[in-house]
Nucleic acid binder design. Sequence first.
DNA 1: GCAAATTAATGATTTATTCAAG
DNA 2: CTTGAATAAATCATTAATTTGC
Lengths: 214, 214
Amino acid sequence: MKVHQFARGFWEQEPTLTLGGCKRFRPLAPKLPNSDNVVSATPFDLKSFIRPESGPRKLGFSDDKRESTQVETQPGGTRWNPTQEQIGILEMLYRGGMRTPNAQQIEQITAQLGKYGKIEGKNVFYWFQNHKARERQKQKRNSLGLSHCPRTPASTISSSITMETRGSEEEREDSPCKRKCRTWTFECLEEDKRYNKEEGDRTLELFPLHPEGR
Amino acid sequence: MKVHQFARGFWEQEPTLTLGGCKRFRPLAPKLPNSDNVVSATPFDLKSFIRPESGPRKLGFSDDKRESTQVETQPGGTRWNPTQEQIGILEMLYRGGMRTPNAQQIEQITAQLGKYGKIEGKNVFYWFQNHKARERQKQKRNSLGLSHCPRTPASTISSSITMETRGSEEEREDSPCKRKCRTWTFECLEEDKRYNKEEGDRTLELFPLHPEGR
DNA sequence: GCAAATTAATGATTTATTCAAG
DNA sequence: CTTGAATAAATCATTAATTTGC
């Protein structure tokens, strides 16, 4: 099987990946301590490798200096705490019919909401996911209690801005036809901790492979 | 309520947000026929049109030269088509115990696998998700047939490289304790379509629009 | 041998659940 | 108790295998 061969090259080039922390894996290759390998590799071997939640959860926003000790993959950190403005806007968008914003939309929403407080794209994403799910639950609960006239709670929604959302088709809430709208990429944990600093932080590049460039 | 106020500014500044690709909604704002908002959206309306193989599906490694015209913001989107090398490495990692790599891990894996063909972080993420889920299904199916001795298939995994992954703690397979490891961000649809790229096209910035310094 | 037609795999998204911070 | 965060299950969609008729 050729896999091993490939694997071989793989490990040799990226010793980092050879489970720095997880010794169980015996590297197929010698080890190759070569300091800088390809992709700048961000040496951080495997600390986070599967044991990310060990460290202190709290530190949060103190002020990242993690690169020194690498505090296990980012300070767990405080979770997003939306401001009234942010919630208001999100709800408006929701009422407006938005259910599963795509990457660009999320990006822009995030940019806007960032004016009212720290926020990241994932917060927006999650908010829509949760809000949608919970509205659904609520509705289901209600329907059980009423057992008829399923259209009741729609009032707020339908009143002013139901929009085309689903009025046109047969679909309800969020049809599956909206598939394939989102694209995303992973980001180095390090940086997502910044609060909203001005300019610069908008231009985040997606592949923060370089250790600390920013 | 101030919401409207915010909303107002919001829409004005970010017309793009009016649902780029999902025409279903009618934007609160005028409409903004501005072409760019469709953005990718990959109106792929017709491409898949029942005759999926019409276009040059093969390109893969041949030597694509399409980047010149960029084919309207990327072609409906070819999905990732892993090479043998990539699969081999991924499977190795999986056998090594990796189940839900975090952002950093994904990043690095992606960087490595990128040597063997175009790949993005999300592909790696999805691969693990799917592989894990499908192994589970398979196992369940098997167990139904056997209805006993649940420890059977573990052999390969436990034998040589279980790693610290969860060897140290109480967690098995993929306990929920691994929560909160991942961080990701959304990316503009535009670029994710490029094929392999080398240089710096990775540093793209995401906010083509920030209206004002915020 | 070969393409169109079908089927099997599997990549990509969405939805449902669960966990836990506040 | 509310709700942000994360994962697993279900689902959709596209690509590669394969079968089939010529």
